[in-house]
Design a binder for these strands. Structure first.
Lengths: 213, 213
DNA sequence: CTTCAATATATCAAACTGATATATCTAGTG
DNA sequence: CACTAGATATATCAGTTTGATATATTGAAG
């Protein structure tokens, strides 16, 4: 047997916010919460079918833009119960697989330039992401007070019925903001590590003091 | 098609340090580098077979403790070439799936106590790990200067031939130390986030100033 | 002398990834 | 107006990874 059906409950959780299609969910995860979660189509569609089979969600045909087919999935009461149970259950710690850290580690007995190069690659990867996150952070900090989420995720959460009063999305905005802050803090920590590691590997190891603090 | 054979090259990389058995590799990863990497038996044994099939490693029967069967895998020249190529190739960024962060995010419209409880669970999970890491850090900081790695990993790296002069493992110790530092910095960042998030969710949101910095 | 933990290899179902196939509609370009 | 690129939308598949378990031997502790 394998694993704990993370996708299964993740999807259920997202449906508890709003009925969505498979495509919507993918976009939502990608645009909104990719710093701490991810889903692939290959897992998404089978999972949605399974949720329907097991009575935790319902599937209905909806209007896609134009004449495209589009299936909206809605959580059921039974689904909400299952979700709550999962929310209360103990959670797995994060498992990380960092290819760059592994390569760095392995470069131990190789020319010193190699470790340095890997740290540079690592740093530039992190900086690129940090820039994106910092950009989002500004938008979200405003959204926490106004409820105006960026459209990529906002349009999925807004009430679809025409004239209805717009939902107040400030609670959601706060969650987007806070979880993004986590992403930023972790990135900054990783960047700080790059500095530390680079310093420790500098040709002249006057660093030995620094290394042991 | 899927993926980039990370296990394949990870195993090859570890074998480039020292010939090992499947069990050794598992233990090495678990004891030594689990803060940034992990491998499961289910992937390890098939991968080892494949490395042998493709000429990147050789398999030979060796003496297990007592009369147990034990297979030692040794990297070949072709293996070293393939490894170097991989080391130079661009690397995938880390993808994280944090169950606790997801639950926290989803708890948006639920009783506030729930988000608080999840943050507490998160914090205690992180603190537990941080304690272990901090313990290791002390040992490794010493090992950086003496080369005396903790036995769990050290015995795998020491020359097996009886009277041979012991290898100087200080370069390896430095890598263990530095990558562990990464793990510590990231844990600390996550803990700092728990504080930040808890503060932002405190009943009286005099935090709005704090939230927007 | 028995039971427990460590050593050691191996396999499997289930979960997950990354790529790709298919098709429709929208907007912009020449 | 025709063409094309990109967004919308569902779906599948091979390859990768996980977590659990099966099996067997040995060493140490009680």
């Amino acid at each position: 047997m394998a694993a704990r059906k993370k996708t299964y409950f993740a999807v259920l959780g997202l449906l508890s916010w709003k009925p969505m299609s498979g495509y919507d969910i993918k976009k939502f995860v990608e645009m909104g919460i990719s710093h701490f979660w991810n889903e692939s189509y290959g897992q998404l569609f089978p999972t949605l079918s399974r949720l329907v089979d097991e009575g935790l969600a319902t599937k209905e045909q909806a209007q896609g833009s134009g004449r495209r087919k589009r299936f909206l999935y809605t959580i059921t009461d039974q689904g909400r119960e299952a979700l709550e149970e999962w929310l209360r259950a103990p959670s797995e710690p994060v498992r990380t697989r960092s290819e760059l850290t592994l390569k760095f580690f392995l470069s131990c007995r190789r020319p010193p330039a190699e470790a340095a190069r890997l740290l540079e690659e690592h740093r530039s990867q992190l900086e690129e992401r940090l820039e994106e996150y910092t950009e989002s952070e500004r938008t979200l900090a405003r959204a926490v007070e106004t409820g105006a989420l960026p459209d990529e995720v906002g349009h999925l959460l807004q009430a679809d019925s025409e004239e209805e009063s717009a939902l107040d999305l400030r609670p959601e905005a706060l969650m987007f903001y806070l979880t993004l802050r986590q992403g930023i803090l972790v990135l900054q920590a990783r960047l700080a590590w790059c500095d530390e590691a680079a310093a420790a590997l500098k040709p002249n190891p006057s660093n030995l003091g620094a290394v042991t603090q």
